[in-house]
Simulated assay, not measured.
Amino acid sequence: MRPPVARRLLKPVTGLAWILVVVWSAVSVTFLLSRIVPADPARLAAGLDAGPEQVAQVRAEMGLDQPLIVQYGRYLGDLLTGDLGRSVQTRQPVLDDLLSALPASLELILVSSLIYAVLGVLAGIAWAYWPRGPHTLLLRLGAVVGVAVPVFWVGLLLQIVFAGRLRWFPVAGNFDFEGTGVPRVTGMGLVDTALTGDLTLVGEALRTLALPVTTLVVTHFAVAMTLMRSSLEEQLRRPYVRTARARGVKERRIVFADALRNALNPVVTMLGLQLGWSLGGVVIIEVIFSWPGLGLYAYHAFSAFDYNAIMAVTLLSTVAFVLINALVGAIYPLLDPRLKEAR
């Protein structure tokens, strides 16, 4: 039975309200933490050689001499107008810094997420569909390596072998827009080189992506594969599968038309969570490979206690995580019609 019309109409409003509450909570907690840590943002902004009068002047300019509630209200007001403050490191508006760093992180995250999602799902299906054979040994080994090996170790090993010894790929850095003369349209090397139609430049962009993307794929692939395998195996033990087999339905149709669709729900949830965490979790990868994205920007912000930049990165990561989870919730009914009916 379908829920009342009023209830269906209220669901989007309720969902938006929860998103705003989560974002406001994250902003409030981060603001409070940035004010109670022992470091002095005004001292850092003025410079270690600045005198007391200069520090006091900078503190007044930054509004840090005001009561905490006034600072909080001013920050929320600026936030509503898109003003995220100025960075202590770059002396530029934080919003400009984020817009400059975001494309590199998005390129790294989207390419690696697509690869490990496809490979993980396919490997998990193969493991569940053919549970015995020589391929299972390789899959088990991949699962153990992906879970047990630290991400920084994988990155450093790839740099040593494929960049240092073999010299197949650059050891660090993003695609060189200035050196190659490629117009910076989106800020993503792979997309902008593809727009030029020059396959040589596309290959160069792929070379710069290869090592950081491989590092992310190796460390995330195992989770997707293992979850896909266990979820599909659980579905294959369900009564509806036994009934379909008793009716003579072909095994391939049972697996790929019925069981797989139901098994994808927890996998989609996990992939959504990983994608949501990736925006704030690529710090190690970007530091290792000197990738000029949000992760490297956040690392330098925390090192210099650039609290405007720290709060902006926190806000962006929170919004991305919440929106991705909302998108995952919207995808559920497409995979399971029963959920669509319940809505």
Rank of each mutant, 00 (worst) to 15 (best):
residue 63 G to I: 10
residue 10 L to M: 15
residue 311 M to N: 09
residue 82 G to T: 15
residue 154 V to T: 01
residue 139 L to F: 14
residue 154 V to A: 07
residue 269 T to W: 12
residue 14 T to S: 10
residue 5 V to K: 14
residue 256 F to R: 05
residue 340 K to Y: 08
residue 165 R to V: 10
residue 317 S to E: 11
residue 66 Q to H: 11
residue 7 R to G: 04
residue 165 R to N: 13
residue 131 P to I: 08
residue 163 A to N: 01
residue 273 L to C: 00
residue 150 P to T: 05
residue 320 A to R: 01
residue 149 V to S: 06
residue 162 F to S: 02
residue 144 V to A: 15
residue 25 S to Y: 10
residue 147 V to S: 04
residue 271 L to G: 08
residue 170 P to H: 03
residue 195 L to N: 03
residue 288 I to W: 10
residue 78 D to V: 00
residue 30 T to R: 03
residue 212 P to E: 07
residue 47 G to L: 09
residue 44 L to D: 10
residue 290 S to G: 01
residue 22 V to S: 13
residue 293 G to K: 00
residue 311 M to S: 12
residue 70 V to T: 15
residue 122 L to E: 08
residue 258 D to Q: 15
residue 173 G to H: 07
residue 2 R to C: 03
residue 220 H to R: 14
residue 246 A to H: 01
residue 62 M to Q: 06
residue 43 R to P: 06
residue 249 V to K: 05
residue 64 L to W: 12
residue 246 A to T: 04
residue 338 R to F: 08
residue 283 V to G: 04
residue 65 D to T: 00
residue 193 T to M: 02
residue 284 I to E: 06
residue 107 E to A: 00
residue 249 V to R: 12
residue 34 S to M: 15
residue 247 R to Q: 11
residue 215 T to L: 00
residue 234 E to I: 04
residue 72 Y to K: 07
residue 336 D to W: 03
residue 44 L to M: 14
residue 12 P to F: 12
residue 43 R to F: 12
residue 64 L to F: 13
residue 147 V to E: 10
residue 75 Y to I: 10
residue 123 A to S: 13
residue 286 E to Q: 02
residue 218 V to R: 05
residue 63 G to C: 07
residue 327 L to K: 13
residue 250 K to N: 08
residue 182 V to H: 06
residue 343 R to M: 15
residue 105 S to W: 04
residue 88 V to S: 12
residue 274 Q to G: 12
residue 160 I to V: 14
